[in-house]
């Protein structure tokens, strides 16, 4: 009996995670179904695209430009040891488009918009506003979740493109202007090493991350319980779970694509 108890205790969290994963998938599926049913709620989608995309732009820009600059600086010290300074540009460009662009953008958006999504929907849940939506014959998944998921999937690649570009510009500034790497060689190396596929695969990642962070955040908000405290907990958990999921999925996406 004691043995059974031990296994039960060990297995419970695992089963819990699986259960939760299943519920997240269900929410996503119902959001996907509602995306194709009228009314299409473009106004809501646009509102969320503004909240997730446009409003995240400044923080994404700052992150991108500083990571591009740091990347250039750090790789320069490494490459200089064997005279490969000209590879700095390519290193920055490849890292930005393949990894840093999509991942950092997703993390910043999670912190900014994901937590807001969870808090907003969570507040609506504890203040009976979701019940009110049902009572007024409006499906809350379509009204609240679908626009956010769609906005996440559309705006993340856009933000990532901007982030890629700004990161490379930052690297160019540091490498070409401050460290004195020939800017022609710097750019030539980028064009030589960077493939269009690097950019596009990065964008596919971004779409996946946008999906993950918005579904997870909406899920956490949608099933909030326990008043104002619960809303806070939902927001925190949304960020933590989204972040971890983004990193895990990043590994698998990278393994599949590159």
């Amino acid at each position: 009996m004691a043995m059974m108890n031990f296994f039960e205790y060990a297995g419970r969290p695992f089963v819990g995670i699986l259960e939760e994963f299943g519920r997240v998938m269900l929410l996503f599926l119902s959001a996907a179904v509602w995306a194709f049913r009228p009314p299409f709620r473009l106004r809501q989608v646009f509102k969320q695209m503004e909240a997730v995309g446009v409003n995240s732009l400044p923080v994404v820009l700052i992150t991108a430009v500083s990571s591009g600059m740091v990347l250039a600086l750090q790789s320069y010290y490494g490459f200089r040891m064997f005279g490969g300074e000209s590879l700095v540009g390519a290193t920055v460009a490849l890292s930005m488009t393949r990894e840093i662009g999509p991942v950092f953008t997703a993390l910043m958006v999670t912190g900014r918009a994901g937590s807001a999504m969870a808090a907003e929907i969570g507040t609506m849940r504890v203040k009976e506003q979701i019940d009110a939506l049902y009572a007024m014959s409006v499906n809350p998944v379509q009204f609240l979740v679908m626009p956010r998921v769609l906005a996440g999937m559309v705006t993340l690649p856009v933000l990532t493109v901007v982030s890629d570009f700004i990161g490379i510009v930052g690297g160019y500034f540091v490498g070409g202007q401050l460290l004195g790497i020939n800017s022609g060689v710097f750019m030539a190396r980028i064009y030589e090493m960077l493939d269009l596929n690097d950019i596009f695969n990065g964008l596919i990642k971004a779409v996946c991350f946008g999906l993950i962070l918005s579904v997870v955040s909406c899920y956490k908000g949608f099933y909030t319980t326990g008043g104002a405290e619960g809303v806070g907990r939902a927001a925190t958990q949304a960020v933590v779970i989204s972040t971890v999921s983004i990193f895990i999925s990043d590994f698998f996406l990278t393994a599949v694509m590159f």
Partner: peptide
């Protein structure tokens, strides 16, 4: 705003 944002991307 969203239009400008997407077009920029």
């Amino acid at each position: 705003k969203v239009g400008v944002f997407v077009v920029m991307g």
